[in-house]
């Protein structure tokens, strides 16, 4: 009864964890760069041995993240069920946006406003798909502009130098959008909202309590039951020491995100950047 249901493979959890680590490193070094005029920015930079060190770490971490993204793209192509090809993209286990997600969005909105009964989410809710694909377009935008800024002199051999003015602003705004989205909306939906508070370890454990899933993904659990696949996906919850570890690591990262968010906002008026 208190079993968990398997939701993510170790590979997927590794991708997510790698993304967390590189994202956080890039956030800290990127904000150190952006805020270097302020005392807070200098404190952040001093963690990496000063301004130059922070920039170097930012560049190298960026390359690592892009390499990871490249591997993820290959992984995605590899995980498509090619035998059922076009149909498999529209299956209920697929991350591809479908008409159902649009309906779910409006049903969910209706439920929030107290107008209708909520949607019965299948394997993925619309916001889970949104958060997943947001990383794709986000990484494409920061990745291309980041590569352009990696070595400005080299880049300007292949395109006019003034594209660097554009690239830097696009890079900056997309990065701020990504950080703000993760540190507020993503943390809120996955950890802070009343039904998940204080912490959801799904992405560390790979599985989630079946009771919780019956509420959040009822259509998925029902489908697994009728297809008789539920028993195969049942796993025992992680032992307590591991769960304490997940919680500790998770909250250290959430805390870091909130720290960056709060100090970033508090210092924003000290910046001389003019939009």
């Amino acid at each position: 009864m208190t079993d968990n249901v398997k939701r993510f493979t170790p590979t997927q959890m590794l991708f997510h964890f790698g993304l967390i680590i590189t994202f956080m490193l890039l956030s800290v070094t990127g904000l150190a760069w952006m805020y270097i005029e302020t005392a807070w920015g200098q404190v952040l930079a001093s963690l990496f041995g000063g301004y130059a060190g922070a920039l170097e770490v930012h560049r190298i971490t960026g390359l690592i993240l892009l390499a990871g993204f490249g591997i993820h793209v290959l992984y995605t192509i590899w995980s498509i069920d090619w035998k059922q090809f076009p149909d498999s993209l529209m299956s209920r286990d697929s991350m591809v946006f479908q008409w159902r997600d649009v309906k779910d969005f409006f049903l969910h909105l209706g439920w929030i406003l107290g107008l209708s009964k909520g949607p019965e989410f299948d394997r993925w809710s619309w916001w889970e798909k949104f958060d997943y694909w947001a990383v794709w377009w986000g990484l494409i935008i920061v990745g291309v502009t980041g590569l352009m800024l990696y070595d400005p002199v080299l880049t300007s051999d292949y395109m006019p130098g003034w594209l660097l003015n554009v690239a830097l602003w696009v890079h900056r705004i997309e990065a701020v959008l990504a950080m703000a989205h993760i540190f507020t909306i993503h943390f809120f939906i996955e950890h802070f909202r009343p039904r998940c508070f204080p912490f959801s370890a799904t992405m560390f454990e790979g599985s989630k309590a079946i009771d919780h899933l019956r509420q959040e993904h009822p259509a998925w659990i029902a489908r697994l039951e009728t297809e008789g696949r539920l028993d195969r996906l049942r796993v025992p919850p992680a032992p307590v020491p591991l769960r304490i570890l997940y919680f500790g690591v998770g909250y250290a990262l959430i805390g870091l995100g909130l720290f960056l968010l709060i100090f970033g906002l508090a210092n924003v008026m000290l910046l001389t950047l003019q939009l």
């Binding site: 909105l109 929030i112 554009v166 602003w169 959008l177 507020t184 909306i185 939906i189 802070f192 909202r193």
Partner: peptide, 28 residues
């Protein structure tokens, strides 16, 4: 280009901030 990015970022928050606030209230 900068306006496009500002609209993109602004749009995401203009939708999500009110949305999740109401959502929290509803769950509570």
């Amino acid at each position: 280009a900068v306006w496009l990015m500002v609209i993109l970022a602004g749009g995401v928050f203009a939708i999500f901030i009110p949305y999740v606030s109401l959502w929290a209230l509803r769950e509570l």
